[in-house]
Design a protein around this nucleic acid. Structure first.
Lengths: 153, 153
DNA sequence: CCAAATTAAGTTGTGCACGATATAATCGTG
DNA sequence: CACGATTATATCGTGCACAACTTAATTTGG
């Protein structure tokens, strides 16, 4: 049956829409693009927003601590934090007891953004349009995926 | 009941690990980082790999066609395609019947990568470590999310 | 207590991703 | 058929993300 054979052979090859990696990549970009116009009003980028959320949750942190929370390295964080500092949202100060460390803390202006940033959440949930159960399921699967990869690294 | 009140108040605020956007962002980066060492052997980046898969699936395409398949704009694709061309994997040629268009096609070398690229898939599935049903569920949820956002844009 | 190792942060270079703008080819309509 | 719109692509600037390398401070072992 040549046509079945041919189809089976095709399966060996690659259908973009069946790649988890592509579906994940597309979803990620769709979400960040949906965030963009809302964050523009705060003058924030999406990674900058995540850094602020990390600071809201954990309080003042070292750059290393932020990197551990967000899985980002210095090459990403240092310039990002400088931009947040230039925009008046955070302070970067060398720690006095260990001068290798830089402590990042919120300015008043950065702290003041907290409520306004939280108020975005319902709008974003509406844009993403997933029911509560789907949302939880999706987060669980994504956490499993991330943990599996970390375990094999 | 003050403690319940306090918790309810906290809910107003932001827990990074409960943000779908953060979980998605982390999973995306974990996956691309897992791909990296495997793609390095082909001298490919992750987006370059996706472009090749699109060409394997659809055959020669215009830049616009690739952009529609991958949801990427010219600002991303043009330099990426130039790098693929410089590495001998694709050809870019102005279409003769419509000189606005550039047709992207695979070179022999690019086409030859197809089987080797397909052979990565089992290794990657193993790294991601999701059972078939979970994988399908995850892809379905991510497609729903992406479609919802597109519908509201 | 000092030299070697480790650690925290920064720098540089490459490659996406996207907005804004530019340019040239084609199309549509009067 | 000319001229204003539209279309396909490219370019430029900004900001991640990551690898490779550098620097300076602290820790550790002899």
């Amino acid at each position: 049956m040549p046509s079945t054979r041919a189809e089976a052979h095709e399966e060996e090859f690659l259908r973009l829409d069946e790649f988890l990696c592509f579906v994940l990549y597309s979803a990620h970009r769709a979400v960040t693009n949906a965030y963009r116009p809302l964050l523009d009003e705060f003058g924030l980028t999406y990674p900058q927003y995540l850094v602020l959320v990390a600071l809201y949750e954990n309080g003042r942190s070292s750059v290393k601590g932020l990197g551990a929370t967000l899985n980002l390295d210095y090459g990403t964080l240092t310039p990002l934090l400088k931009r947040l500092e230039a925009n008046g949202l955070v302070l970067r100060r060398r720690s006095t007891d260990d001068e290798r460390q830089v402590t990042v803390s919120l300015t008043e202006e950065g702290a003041a953004l907290r409520r306004r940033a939280a108020s975005l959440v319902p709008a974003l949930d509406e844009i993403m349009g997933l029911a509560g159960a789907e949302m939880e399921q999706l987060k669980t699967l994504l956490r499993t995926l991330t943990a599996n990869i970390a375990a094999r690294a």
